[in-house]
């Protein structure tokens, strides 16, 4: 099998099939003179109407990637394109347009809704923020009554019915699952093209997790937006996403279809991640999960981020940086010694 590195020169930046093109995005957090690479030259494409799962442990940079794509965080190096536009150059009108097409669902439904605003006020935020463009598109004034019915329809779409009963309620009256549905409604009301969901189920009960995951999956199909599903958990991620990117310490180490990633992982890190997932049927939990030495990670790692606890490590792993390589069937892996079944 011939293995060829992704040539950065041929990495198509104006790819029509992709809504988001991330090109060598790097984010560095400085604490004192220590430089932590939250994102270390990450390249990734999200196609139109596709759900991409970003999987990794805490500190792998997955949330940072999500925030960078939404232009909440500035990149230290690299570029991110949304719909062919470099998002770092967006100003005023174009930025407003970008904001109307991108949305986020947060991890904690308790802090992502302002306790002083009613459900109507929260969900209608994207509408009010884009009211002038909406009115010029429709060529007429939009009344508050219309917005109320719009919000109530969206609430019903996310399973809060009757929607009108929730409009003037404050978030503290709702359960965690209901709040997360409200957050989903706020994200979808303006029909965005891209939604970043940052562990939307991790703070919910197991039964509600399934509901919210199902809701996201069906809405994603129905409304045809691209979804960036950030999670530390492979099972829901696999269920929701078409493709999965596995991140480790700021780098994407493996990228492929959900099937391939979970059934035949090629990167040893992914392999260990999958095997360490607790299974209900088994009696014990395999705790052989990678012990990542964060101290080693200062100023950028020269070799592979996983080298020090990798069972397949050789000399080259600590001296050279592995690049993502196409292994066939859209499966890319950044490893010198991939597991090939």
């Amino acid at each position: 099998m011939t293995v060829e590195a992704v040539d950065t020169n041929t990495y198509e930046l104006n790819d029509d099939r992709s809504i988001v093109v991330i090109d060598k995005a790097t984010v560095i957090f400085k604490s004192g003179h220590v430089r932590n690479y939250a994102l270390d030259s990450v390249s990734l494409k999200i196609r139109r109407g596709e759900a991409v799962g970003i999987v990794g442990e805490s500190g792998s940079g997955k949330t940072t990637l999500g925030l960078a794509v939404l232009k909440i965080l500035r990149l230290n190096a690299g570029r991110i394109f949304f719909d062919g536009m470099d998002i770092s150059r967006l100003r005023s009108k174009k930025l407003a347009l970008f904001r109307s097409k991108t949305q986020m669902i947060f991890q904690d439904p308790y802090s992502s809704l302002n306790p002083y605003n009613t459900i109507f006020e929260s969900v209608a935020t994207p509408v009010f923020s884009n009211i002038s463009r909406l009115e010029s598109e429709l060529q007429r004034k939009v009344t508050k009554r219309e917005i109320r019915s719009m919000v109530s329809e969206t609430l019903e779409k996310v399973g809060l019915s009757p929607g009108s009963a929730f409009l003037d309620v404050y978030p503290r009256k709702l359960s965690g699952g209901q709040r997360q549905r409200v957050a989903v409604a706020r994200a979808l009301i303006m029909h965005p093209k891209l939604v970043v969901a940052d562990e939307p189920t991790s703070m919910l009960d197991v039964s509600i997790t399934a509901q919210v995951a199902n809701l996201l999956k069906s809405l994603q199909k129905e409304m045809d937006f691209s979804l960036m599903y950030i999670s530390h958990e492979l099972s829901t991620s696999r269920y929701i996403s078409n493709r999965i990117a596995v991140m480790c310490l700021g780098r994407v180490v493996e990228l492929g279809t959900s099937e391939d990633i979970t059934k035949s992982p090629m990167h040893p890190y992914t392999d260990i991640l999958i095997r360490s997932m607790p299974e209900v049927s088994s009696s014990g939990i395999n705790d052989s999960i990678a012990k990542i030495d964060f101290n080693a990670y200062n100023g950028g790692i020269k070799g592979c981020v996983f080298a020090h606890s990798c069972p397949r490590k050789t000399e080259i792993c600590t001296s050279e940086k592995p690049l993502l390589q196409e292994m066939g069937n859209d499966h890319e892996v950044a490893c010198f010694h991939p597991i090939i079944a």
Partner: peptide, 14 residues
């Protein structure tokens, strides 16, 4: 730094 402020920024609020 609270998420609901980020949500407002992402929603395009000025």
């Amino acid at each position: 730094e609270r998420p609901f402020i980020k949500a407002a920024v992402i929603s395009g609020m000025k």
